[in-house]
Design a protein around this nucleic acid. Structure first.
Lengths: 156, 156
DNA sequence: TGAAATGCGGATATAAATTATCTAGATTAG
DNA sequence: CTAATCTAGATAATTTATATCCGCATTTCA
């Protein structure tokens, strides 16, 4: 079981945009170069974040992406769902149905699937409790400054 | 992000073996037929459970698999790790390194990766809290009886 | 003792998902 | 008008998951 790389990229991009603050948009190309990831594929992830209203995009020359939410209102769960989709990792395929269980049994949810779903709920709860603002506090101040210096350099 | 089907298969097989109790081993072929899954691939999952000492296997004619642990000592986490492997779903690829961060920053763990790891820890904690014995209690008694009847039929 | 049933591990094949690129069109600054 | 940029859909490449196959070791039972 493996989460797509887009989640890491999306989170780092959000953090970068948050540190730069509410200024001009930053293009996919600049973010991709900054992180050393393929630009066209990063763009797909950023588009997903736009659809989830986590980022705002600006078309045209000097266009790019800005944060669309306040960092204290943007949770890790928001980003994970936007990039990876809303489906649970464990998908019950109801193999118990093959055992020939009774109508009464079928009405009840599968206890195994229930336990797996509970665990994923705990995961989601933990992700929901982490906001971008929390991370901004935890990260060293040097990282924020470095990001701002980088922005001044590349913003043409 | 998607968990392999082997986890569901493994959990249901353990539950079946638990209900049958400490009797003769059950072959891959019988379990696969019972659940309607491909026998050779199910066998791979069962082998993984043997390596994790969750099941015990018996070679030769009338061979098969038995539970190797008491149901109250077998957690969902044990099965998930045995089948899916021990790696976390979120793999930090340290894209921040590309930003040219300082030696001091590099020494600290990435705050984003840390938050993701915490969430997975919550997931693992929840899986660890669910034992096979818990599920045996939650499931309807009819399921246990049906499983035992099936066993009597197929145990040649 | 030999034949049949079974698990084991490695090799291989197939299917599916992820990652990456490409193209054509729309939008915007200058 | 032109260059830069986002968007959406199509396609290609890569990786992972699923499934099968084979040769071998082990065990039951006739």
């Amino acid at each position: 079981m493996r989460m797509g790389e887009g989640v890491e990229w999306g989170l780092h991009c959000c953090l970068t945009l948050a540190w730069i603050g509410d200024q001009e948009p930053i293009s996919t190309a600049k973010l991709a170069e900054h992180f050393g990831v393929p630009p066209t594929y990063l763009n797909k992830c950023l588009q997903a974040l736009v659809r989830a209203e986590i980022l705002r995009s600006v078309s045209g020359a000097r266009g790019g992406f800005c944060l669309a939410k306040r960092p204290d209102e943007l949770t890790f769960l928001d980003v994970v769902i936007a990039v990876e989709g809303p489906d649970a990792a464990f998908r019950c395929t109801e193999i118990r149905q093959n055992e020939g269980c009774s109508r009464d049994e079928k009405r009840r949810p599968c206890a195994i699937a229930g336990a797996m779903q509970e665990a994923e709920e705990a995961w989601r709860t933990a992700l929901k409790a982490q906001t971008l603002a929390d991370i901004m506090q935890k990260a060293p101040a040097a990282a924020a400054e470095r990001t701002r210096r980088w922005y001044q350099e590349v913003r043409r």
